[in-house]
Structure formats: structure tokens, C-alpha cells
Nucleic acid binder design. Structure first.
Length: 462
RNA sequence: GGCUGAAUGGCAGAGUGGCUAUGCACCGGAUUGCAAAUCCGUUUACCUCGGUUCGACUCCGGGUUCAGCCUCCA
């Protein structure tokens, strides 16, 4: 039985889909005006792990993750670059897909773009106005009236009075209440805009998600996810809009992933302390980055550091080392008790650290076998590969994985390495230990680690 | 100021009212020409002060520190 922490109730709850066997899941994606950083990667990977786990439980998952492709920052960046908005957004969407592929993130079922759903947004805003939950101001902006929605503040655990008391933003004179938020913004010169009953303009951010979720998942669905920082105001507003418009509970479970930090501080664009996925891929491969992220619980803060990535690399090497030399014979079956233990951990609100312990125990058991080709080793290795797949890891050929590293200029090629190993082998046969060690030292300097076993020498990148 | 959440061994990171997490690092042994990998073994812990309890790192309360949100943000 799957249990998930529901941000709405602030406790773990048993998960039952609203329709047996099917799950509708919506996750707030990114605003495409720059490259993805490790914080974005965490969101991609966390919900990818959930997507995979729900599927492993036999559920038919419709996973929607939107792309915000109209927004103040996008407009500003396009103007700065002197390029059309859609050229800019497409470039960063392509980059996002590249990054995701490197991190073994599965593509969601749907990746709707805000600009393709403007009509749905307008309809939703009209419905809110008709229902008395929104109003058009004289300047063409349309606002949501928070005072009209009794449950406002439920998701973020805030009271309207408290929020008003702590008001820190300059109040827009067009608003009836300082807490009201914009649904439709009237056009400003030079900005992209669409026609609407309130004149030319563009949608506010929150209404985008409400509209896209409704059109792809319906008025009510199972899981809504996103980063911790979206809980307020974005998700609170989204919930208020959708529930006011449709008169029913919007998402049944709300899930929020924790942040990636740098020096104990949130990684973000505005603090300028972010590392892009592609920068980190220069030094670490996608699987190492993915391991680093999955290695901690999705709700915990995760501190970014190269020491941690180095540790992830070492841990991954241990798992791949155990798989090295094992035969891939799926017919021999799997170790069900390990799978059960893994499922139990994952069913407990995606306890990936505990799930990892199962993988390491399997690796240990494989290593204890007299040979990697015994029936028992094959079963254990099958299990390790299968559970690795559940986390989006360990799907490479072990030798390839152990020898792969981001290629740097001037790095020694596999051919050069093999040639030196052959020369060393000859030296060793002649018991010329000095020459043998010289070659090994030379390779060590190149970051190549040699392992002599059973008369053969294998190498890996350290 | 308001609201959340967190504090575990050298580092990372789970978990449990009494019993080994796991990974990395360290130390001893086996193995190896020497290493590496692997195996065996050892060492290091639960922020603080009270309370509940036969017994608390684990439950309750106070405190301290840290982070997040309250403004665009995964």
C-alpha cells in the first residue's frame, strides 16, 4: 500500500486513486528562459521516480508537466537578446529535453505549453467572473477575489488576516483587496498578447496551470506536484481558481519536493548561486547526478557539493562493479524478497535512501558469490538491474559505465590505455615489477585505475 | 513579525520506544609481486533542558540553531 505525504494535510496518507487503476498527475514545470539548473533537475527526477513507481505498481498514469512559455522574464530576455519570444523558448525547451535525456528522465505523457492553451484560460476566467470569484478592473486587468473563496490559505496554512498584516508588496490600486492576484494582464507595448473579452493581454501565471490541468486531467485528479516554493502563492492560487470554478476538490494529494542548496542556501536564479545541468555534466555524468539526487529523500534539503557528487560516483562504482561479469539471463528470475523490501521502502512516501540500502545489500551478496556466473549471482544481478531501473539507474553495461567519464581534452583514449595495459602485462610476465608499476602510476595520473584479477587486467576511470 | 519544516557517527543519509540502516572515508586482517577490486572484522551517533516510561535518539513540552515561504522562483 502506497503512502504519500500530502502537503495539504501535512501528513502521510494512504494513496488511493480516484479511479481504480488510473492516476492523473500534474507537475508544475519550468519557465523556459534559461538553462535548467540542478534545482530544476531535482524536480524532474523526483517526479520521474514517482511516475516510475506508480507505473511499477501497475497503475495507468497520465503525467502532465507544463511548460510556461509566456512570462515577464521570457519577454525581458527575448528583448535583451533581440530575438522573437518563440525562438527563445523553443531553444530552451530543446535544451531542457537534452538535459532530461542525460538524466534518464522519462518524458511525461503530456507537456502542454501555456501559449497553446490561452482559450482554455480565457474560458476559465470567464467562469470565475460569472461565479463572482473574479472581477475585471478598469485598466483591463482581471483579478481573483480571494475573499470570495472560503478555503483560501488552506494549502499553505495561512490566514488571510496574517497575510494582509505581513503585506510587503506595493499595493496595486486596481485591486479590491491587496491579496487578490491577477488572472489576466492587459497588454503593454511590445509584449506578446492575445484577444480576450477584457481586451488584448496575456494570462497570469497561476491560471495557466489551472486551465492546462483541467483540459488534460479533468476538474479533479490525483496528484499535484512541484517545488516547495510553489506551495504559496502559486499552488494556493491554482487551487482557489480551480475549486471556485468547478465546485469540487482540485488535486487530492499535493506533493512538494525540497530544495537544492548551495552552502546551506537555496539554489536559485535570483541568488545567482546555481549550477546548470549542462555545467555539471562537464564533470559528472547524468547517472551520477541522478544518483546524487535520488540518494536523499525528496522532501529533505539537499546540499550541492562536488564532495557529494564524488561520493555518488564512488557508490555507483560499487554497484556497477558488482554487476561486472554477471550474466544477463532474465529467465532465471529475481529475488522477490529484495523486491518486496524495495517496494516497502518506496511505498513509504518514496523512501529512496532506504530503497538504496536494498541495492547495496544485493551488490554485497553478488560479491560474496564464488563467481559472477552462478545461478544465484544471476538472480541477484537480475534483481539489482531491475531495481536500478525502478530508479532510472544501472541500465548501462557495467564495463561501459565504469570506463565512461565526461571526456576532457587531452584525456587518454581507450586504445592508448589498452596498449599500455598490454605492455604492462608483458612486463609482469617477465616479472619486471618496476616497469609494471611505472605504467600503472602513469595511468593513475590519468585517472585510470587498474585491477588485476584472474590473470586479466581491467581498467576503470576513478 | 507570521507560517512551515529540520537538527543522527569524519562526511552524506535512513530508521526505530529496548535489537547492525546504507554509501563514502578511516583502522586491522584475508587476498595480491605490490596495488586495485572484493571479502571478514573493528571504531565513530542520535542539538539542549525538562517530562512521560521499567526503559527514549525515537513520545510530550520549553529552549537554541538552521533552512524555506510570506516578492518572480523547481
Amino acid at each position: 500500500m502506497l503512502h504519500l505525504y500530502n502537503s495539504l494535510t501535512r501528513k502521510k496518507e494512504s494513496f488511493t486513486p480516484r479511479e481504480a487503476g488510473k492516476v492523473g498527475m500534474y507537475v508544475c514545470g519550468i519557465t523556459v528562459y534559461d538553462f535548467c539548473h540542478i534545482g530544476h533537475a531535482r524536480m524532474f527526477i523526483v517526479f520521474d521516480v514517482l511516475f516510475r513507481h506508480l507505473q511499477a505498481l501497475g497503475l495507468d498514469v497520465t503525467y502532465v508537466r507544463n511548460i510556461t512559455d509566456v512570462d515577464d522574464k521570457i519577454i525581458a530576455r527575448a528583448a535583451q537578446n533581440n530575438e522573437p519570444v518563440d525562438t527563445l523558448t523553443q531553444r530552451y525547451i530543446d535544451a531542457m529535453w537534452e538535459d532530461e535525456a542525460a538524466l534518464s528522465v522519462l518524458r511525461p505523457t503530456h507537456e502542454p505549453r501555456a501559449t497553446a492553451a490561452i482559450d482554455d484560460m480565457i474560458k476559465l476566467i470567464e467562469k470565475l467572473i460569472d461565479g463572482g470569484f473574479a472581477y475585471a478592473a478598469d485598466n483591463g486587468d482581471v483579478f481573483y477575489s480571494v475573499a470570495k473563496f472560503a478555503d483560501y490559505g488552506q494549502l499553505s496554512g495561512r490566514k488571510l488576516e496574517d497575510m494582509r498584516a505581513g503585506e510587503r508588496v506595493a499595493v496595486d490600486q486596481n485591486k479590491e483587496d491587496p491579496m487578490d492576484f491577477v488572472l489576466w494582464k492587459s497588454v503593454k507595448p511590445g509584449e506578446p498578447s492575445w484577444s480576450s473579452p477584457w481586451g488584448e493581454g496575456r494570462p497570469g501565471w497561476h491560471i495557466e496551470c489551472s486551465a492546462m490541468a483541467k483540459s488534460l486531467l479533468g476538474e479533479q485528479f490525483d496528484i499535484h506536484g512541484g517545488g516547495m516554493d510553489l506551495q504559496f502563492p502559486h499552488h494556493e492560487n491554482e487551487k482557489a481558481q480551480s475549486e471556485a470554478a468547478h465546485g469540487k476538490t482540485f488535486a487530492r494529494y499535493w506533493m512538494h519536493n525540497g530544495f537544492v542548496r548551495v552552502d546551506e542556501e537555496k539554489m536559485s536564479k535570483s541568488l545567482d548561486n546555481f549550477f546548470t545541468v549542462r555545467d555539471v555534466l562537464e564533470e559528472y555524468n547524468g547517472e551520477e547526478i541522478r544518483f546524487f539526487i535520488v540518494n536523499s529523500h525528496y522532501r529533505s534539503p539537499l546540499n550541492y557539493s562536488t564532495a557529494q557528487l564524488d561520493s555518488s560516483r564512488a557508490a555507483l562504482q560499487r554497484l556497477y562493479t558488482a554487476l561486472r561479469g554477471t550474466l544477463n539471463v532474465p529467465e532465471k528470475g529475481v529475488d522477490q524478497s529484495a523486491i518486496d523490501r524495495f517496494d516497502e521502502a518506496m511505498n513509504d512516501d518514496l523512501n529512496t535512501p532506504e530503497a538504496f540500502a536494498v541495492l547495496f545489500d544485493l551488490a554485497s551478496d553478488i560479491n560474496k558469490q564464488s563467481s559472477p556466473t552462478t545461478d544465484e549471482a544471476i538472480v541477484l544481478a537480475n534483481t539489482l538491474r531491475a531495481l536500478g531501473a525502478r530508479l532510472g539507474l544501472l541500465q548501462s553495461d557495467p564495463d561501459v559505465a565504469l570506463q565512461a567519464a565526461p571526456v576532457k581534452d587531452g584525456a587518454m583514449s581507450a586504445e592508448q590505455i589498452d596498449a599500455l595495459i598490454a605492455e604492462r602485462l608483458a612486463a609482469r610476465e617477465a616479472k619486471d615489477w618496476q616497469r609494471s608499476d611505472e605504467i600503472r602510476d602513469q595511468l593513475t595520473d590519468e585517472g585510470i585505475v587498474l585491477e588485476d584479477a584472474n590473470g586479466k587486467t581491467t581498467w576503470r576511470r576513478g
